[in-house]
């Protein structure tokens, strides 16, 4: 299990390949990447603030729970902070399981939890304005299914 919090970009292809490489016991790998989406008015910069220390702890706890619950062979979480432009990758998760159902479910669980339980905050900057992204009720509600 690996949790990485970094400012610099990461290479999704290389990370996904490295994660999947050399596994003989796991029949399913699921990867997901979150991308900075453009917004009405044109996104200039997406700024992501985080809580150093707590971020790593929260992500490790979430990933460990996923590994335990779905008997994963491995799990990977990479999440960036700082400033990035539309189209850039913000984060990725990868899960390895014996069967695809567990790999998919575990990846969804990781995404649901790190959306509202890992201390990241997004701020969208346009040419004329800047505003913090509000948490959505449905993101909180999504946790109830687990």
């Amino acid at each position: 299990m690996r949790v990485i919090v970094q400012e610099s970009p990461f290479d999704y292809g290389i990370e996904a390949e490295a994660f999947a490489d050399g596994r003989h016991d796991m029949g399913a790998i699921v990867t997901f990447a979150g991308i900075v989406r453009d917004i009405a008015g044109g996104l200039d910069v997406m700024e992501i603030e985080h809580y150093p220390g707590m971020t790593e702890k929260a992500l490790e706890k979430i990933a460990a729970e996923a590994v335990e619950r779905w008997s994963l062979g491995d799990a990977l979480v990479i999440h960036r902070y700082g400033r990035m432009g539309a189209g850039e990758k913000i984060m990725m998760v990868a899960t390895a399981a014996r069967h695809r159902k567990d790999a998919f479910e575990a990846a969804e669980y990781l995404m649901d939890y790190l959306k509202s339980r890992a201390p990241f905050w997004k701020k969208e900057h346009t040419q004329s304005d800047a505003g913090w992204v509000a948490a959505k009720d449905e993101d909180e509600a999504a946790l109830k299914r687990w």
Binding site: G34, Y51, G53, H79, S116, P119, F120, W121, V133, A135
Partner: peptide, 26 residues
């Protein structure tokens, strides 16, 4: 101390308190 808590939680022994809006990761 870097664990999500409640507003009625006791502060005894706590070294670090953080306040923030609901998180928006992912």
């Amino acid at each position: 101390d870097q664990e999500l808590s409640e507003f009625d939680s006791p502060l005894e022994g706590v070294r670090e308190v953080a306040f923030f809006p609901p998180m928006t990761g992912g």
